[in-house]
């Protein structure tokens, strides 16, 4: 389980989890789950296109991910991305369907693109993934404060001269970047579970933003490690375990929050976690 090609899988999964935990924290904070779903999902078309014209799939992923981010940002109306996201996503997916149909040899790979093939990661994939991860982490660290304020209080952020539209675009670009690096290894459909499940679970356990951010990374790591181990033991796809373990961790978080709230009401000296005031 820890030998040979498995080492690559563990390494890449760890990198992916760190990035997904960090970026996902803001995805959940901003309520942009849809965007986090759309950009990875749509960018799969890029890989199909890349294989059709015979270039590196990573380039295809990158081009389509950034195209998606800019399109969502341009079509969105005052921060309302709902419809714009949906249409951008299906346009990219439609293109993906076309490319898949046209390229003869590609069809069997659709599955691995959608659901990932983390156990088959090679050393040549590992290096660009690590490089992009570093860029991602630096970008999040740079954006941290303005992103935080414009996510929480957009009016105040604007009043303080923060270009909220530009921050929004920058954030979408970070999601696109995270997508480009993670999708080829964990699949388009499941990076999303990691980006939502881990941070959503984390916020049940702490009130402090930085702690929640750290916890989000920790939970994402736990999810992928557990998924790889389970997949190795059972031979079932990693994606299945990532999806279900994410949902399970969220459920545990919700139960924990409900329990502490319950306990908090019983002992008035305890920390105030639940809504007492109306």
């Amino acid at each position: 389980m820890f030998s040979g090609f498995m080492i690559h899988a563990w390494t890449v999964a760890t990198i992916v989890a760190v990035v997904a935990g960090l970026v996902g924290f803001f995805v959940v904070l901003r309520g942009s789950a849809f965007v986090a779903h759309a950009i990875p999902n749509g960018s799969f078309a890029g890989a199909a296109a890349a294989s059709l014209v015979g270039i590196n799939t990573l380039i295809g992923f990158g081009v389509f991910a950034f195209f998606g981010a800019f399109s969502i940002s341009a079509l969105g109306h005052r921060g309302r991305h709902d419809v714009a996201t949906a249409l951008t996503l299906v346009l990219m997916l439609g293109l993906g369907a076309l490319f898949v149909t046209l390229s003869v040899e590609y069809t069997p790979e659709v599955y691995s693109l959608l659901f990932g093939e983390i156990l088959g990661v090679s050393i040549s994939q590992l290096i660009p993934t690590a490089g992009l991860a570093v860029v991602c982490v630096i970008a999040i660290a740079l954006l941290y404060r303005p992103l935080m304020l414009s996510s929480l209080l957009p009016d105040v952020a604007e009043a303080r001269g923060i270009a909220t539209a530009r921050i929004d675009l920058a954030f979408l670009a970070v999601v696109a970047l995270a997508t480009t690096m993670t999708v080829p290894v964990v699949g388009t459909l499941l990076i999303f579970s990691l980006m939502i499940g881990a941070p959503a679970a984390a916020r049940s356990f702490t009130d402090k933003p930085l702690q929640a951010l750290g916890l989000s990374v920790a939970i994402a790591l736990a999810i992928v490690w557990a998924a790889i181990a389970l997949s190795y033991q059972t031979n079932y796809p990693v994606g299945f375990f990532v999806g279900t373990v994410s949902a399970a961790s969220y459920t545990v978080g919700r139960l924990w929050a409900a329990w502490t709230r319950h306990a908090g009401i019983r002992s008035p000296t305890g920390p105030r976690v639940g809504p007492k005031y109306t």
């Binding site: 740079l142 404060r145 929480l152 952020a157 009043a159 916020r203 009130d207 933003p209 929050a257 809504p275």
Partner: peptide, 29 residues
Amino acid sequence: PQKFQLDPDVPLRARDLVALGLDAHRYGI
């Protein structure tokens, strides 16, 4: 601002929000 709605599950304490007022326009942590 007038409107202010934040879900109870957002991990942000009152003191964190106040601290953000100090220098939220700056980049970096």
